[in-house]
Computed example of a mutant assay.
Amino acid sequence: MTGRVKRKAGLAEAAARAAREAPPPPCAICGRPLGAKVEWHHLVPKSEGGRVTAAVHPICHRTVHATLPNAALARDYADPAVLRTHPDIARFLRWIADKPADFHAPVRRRR
């Protein structure tokens, strides 16, 4: 028998359509839906041997690294739930809560 083999495209197309239509996953730090730009935060920094990553907003990622050194992230704040309890991060989360997903602002290190 010659000719093309017919494939069942319905299942694959349905899965692809569902993935496109699904709401974006939330940021691991602030919990807001992710926007067009996504960064991957190592929960334990790579310099400290970490391999597990989480999707985060760029502003959330920069704030975490501007606030805490890698050693403290590895030792005390490897869990996003614990990271949210840090006073400076908690203050940032209250401020960012009503901003759009792709909001951007300069991030400064603490003195």
Rank of each mutant, 00 (worst) to 15 (best):
E21Y: 00
N70I: 01
C60R: 01
I29A: 05
V56L: 03
H104Y: 05
T85R: 15
P100C: 12
A9R: 14
P24N: 08
E48N: 09
P33I: 08
A71P: 00
A18F: 07
C30V: 09
V52T: 14
A16G: 03
G49E: 07
P58T: 08
L43F: 03
W40P: 00
P25H: 06
L68D: 02
F103T: 08
H61G: 02
A66D: 04
K6T: 12
A19F: 07
C27A: 11
L73H: 01
A18K: 15
G35L: 09
K99L: 09
K46N: 05
A55V: 03
K46Y: 10
K8G: 09
L43W: 05
H42M: 08
R84N: 07
Y77M: 03
K99E: 11
S47D: 11
H86T: 12
R51N: 11
K8S: 13
T63Y: 05
R20Y: 11
A22D: 07
A9S: 13
C27Y: 05
R51G: 14
F103Q: 02
A90E: 13
A55D: 07
E13P: 02
I59C: 02
A19T: 09
P80G: 06
R84I: 07
R94F: 02
R62C: 02
W40L: 15
I29K: 00
R7W: 10
A72W: 04
A97N: 08
N70Y: 04
T85Y: 02
P23Y: 06
C30L: 11
L93T: 05
E21P: 01
L11Q: 13
A15Y: 06
P23R: 10
A36I: 11
G10R: 13
T67K: 01
A71Y: 05
N70T: 04
E48G: 01
A97V: 11
